[in-house]
Design a protein around this nucleic acid. Sequence first.
DNA 1: TGCGGAATTAACCACTTGGTAGGTTTTTGA
DNA 2: TCAAAAACCTACCAAGTGGTTAATTCCGCA
Lengths: 246, 246
Amino acid sequence: MSTGTGRAPYGPPAEGARPSKGERTRARILDAAAALFSRSGFNAVSLRDIAAHAGLTHAGLLHHFPGKGRLLLEVLERRDLIDARELFPGLLRPGSPAPEPARRLRLLLELVARNSRTPGLVALYAKVSAEATDPDHPAHAYFARRYRYLRTELTGIVADLQRAAGAGDAVDPGVVAGQLLALMDGLQTQWLLEPEAVPMEALVRDFLDRLGLLPADGAEATDGLEAGDGAGTETGDGAEAGGVSR
Amino acid sequence: MSTGTGRAPYGPPAEGARPSKGERTRARILDAAAALFSRSGFNAVSLRDIAAHAGLTHAGLLHHFPGKGRLLLEVLERRDLIDARELFPGLLRPGSPAPEPARRLRLLLELVARNSRTPGLVALYAKVSAEATDPDHPAHAYFARRYRYLRTELTGIVADLQRAAGAGDAVDPGVVAGQLLALMDGLQTQWLLEPEAVPMEALVRDFLDRLGLLPADGAEATDGLEAGDGAGTETGDGAEAGGVSR
DNA sequence: TGCGGAATTAACCACTTGGTAGGTTTTTGA
DNA sequence: TCAAAAACCTACCAAGTGGTTAATTCCGCA
């Protein structure tokens, strides 16, 4: 969202300087696409809708993105960039200087909490990941890779937490990771249908607690919230979050 | 699937007699719609696709169903009818002669196992429930009602199981029910993307086991499988299952 | 056998879809 | 300042969308 991101199509962001007109439009288009995909999924949204939302023609939009599928992928990737910067550094840069387990757990819970406040992109990931189940879907490979990565990464976190808590390998960390990932996903669908009936964060926290993976607890749980969002600056009109659990 | 279901639109099925031509094509249309919705979701499938699959024109299809949304709802409802007949009798007939808890648990696990063998309708519920998150979606009310019902019903089952296992109320049955429902949902999305990497049934079973809700275990787990499908006779080309967890 | 209603169709409607072609305007950097 | 490049628009395309209408074919029953 907000200010400049990339300089040329798919290129790295320009750091200090004011973004060019093209860069600004590109960002506006991505914002609009994220908002509309969130509301109605991928298939039900037209390029003309998105373009109008961004203040240009759909032909103008296609000057910046080669096609609808590509646009979707860029929306998803940009979200990962903002959201998972800390939690799963390996998703972006394969060389992974992972933070310590306790911190990663806290970041994970913060993410769930943040999702609870932002239906928009939660809906994006929920809808598009379901659509992407179809092997022909433009984001199919993206989501398959994503889940594979998240499962293994989450397995590592769980194993670390078990070790830290002295809980041994009473339960297979891979199993717990798969369950945790599924839990977060499934809760989102329910929560989108009936927000007040599904306290996402509490349910995830309870799940972890029952496994003895939650530290001393207390009031330190969500402190430092919003601290990790960094350079993205979280402007945007629609919403945020959604990045990891879906 | 298979033979006759309703006599008139939305009417009860005719029992013994051979179904009329209209009833037969209606069933064929529902079969085709289920198969195609499963493959690509609701929005991405056209009435012409469905009609062609069923061997008629899309105008002919619209003689039997007043519109696309209605068709979707009937597909979903028919699935519930076949699938949840025993597990959640209250979904169909509000007067609920519920089976005993142990049996319901077994039925639940059987359902998960059956889902693991039938991607088609699992995909249907996964995709459509995600789409239906949108308040304007024709199936929105259906899914909201469905989840509400499943949560309370599952809460009852969990409470019964806790009582039967002597596990007291160590954990809130409502919490467990919500988690269980989410777990089953979330696993389906992952499983559809990468079937071999996600052993759905084992993960659900493990979750329940850790809560002490699984009985003695042993080989009796999936016996009597397929026993409960009853009059629907499970023909159809595409697949089955998917009914409850999504 | 014949008749009435159900089933089905071809043709059409107005509208939307993603994408392209070619020209015009605006930015940008020298 | 000025020209090249990037941005953007109008107009178009072929293909599809859900749905309607009016006519035809078929089925089932008397």
